[in-house]
Design a protein around this nucleic acid. Structure first.
Lengths: 110, 110
DNA sequence: CCAATGCATATCCATATGGGTATACAATCG
DNA sequence: CGATTGTATACCCATATGGATATGCATTGG
């Protein structure tokens, strides 16, 4: 078995830096493919394929507008990732918690 | 060029579900490889290799204890992921913000 | 109606993957 | 010291990748 498909889930889709760039660009608002091509400095077919991956995991949605295709971000798709990392957040912030505890103890001693 | 190495960064390392399982297990505390093997139901060599990937991106640290190797989580490594998704959080929560605005407007009208 | 524009898809290629299995190495036990 | 336990590494394989490039298709403009 090879590595899981990039379209397997948002985690895989977003592991690719270019795709994160695309999402970052779309965070500003809806954009046609051509604009993303210019922004990323990638060949158009590549951008189209990255967009396809993002579409398949639901991270973006398309809308036809004449001969253009406008892509829009679907932020909800990122929520699972957020939920997962968020459960670790207290761990890397623990030091501050510990510091607070120490300060609390010091206060009580006086 | 093929897909980026899983050891390229934490995003890639964590795209693999088994590796997320490993991190989840380590969130409970330090564990020897064998324990992870049992927990994940994977072959030992696979677990060792997943651990290696996680080590290379700094998501875990090892400590030798006799003939065991105790792995420990390094939560800091997940911060970049958190920071990235967090910047999108307001977007999927926007609906609530909008709702609040509407409610605010209604209040002011009365 | 034909040309041009905007995208998507199809190939070709080198590469890294994750699973399977065998094996090497280190530490401990008797 | 030899056997056992706990891990890491070495291979073999099928698969999907991302980049490159060519091409197909639809919409619009002259």
């Amino acid at each position: 078995m090879a590595r899981a498909a990039t379209t397997a889930d948002t985690f895989n889709a977003v592991a690719e830096p270019r795709r994160r760039e695309i999402l970052d660009a779309l965070a500003q608002g809806e954009r046609p493919v051509n604009e993303l091509v210019t922004l990323l400095g990638l060949a158009q077919p590549h951008v189209s394929r990255h967009l396809r991956v993002l579409r398949e995991v639901g991270a973006v949605v398309v809308r036809d507008e004449g001969r253009q295709r406008l892509y829009r971000l679907n932020p909800q798709a990122l929520k699972p990732i957020h939920d997962w990392v968020a459960s670790y957040q207290h761990l890397w912030e623990e030091r501050f918690d510990l510091l607070e505890d120490v300060l609390e103890d010091l206060k009580e001693e006086h």
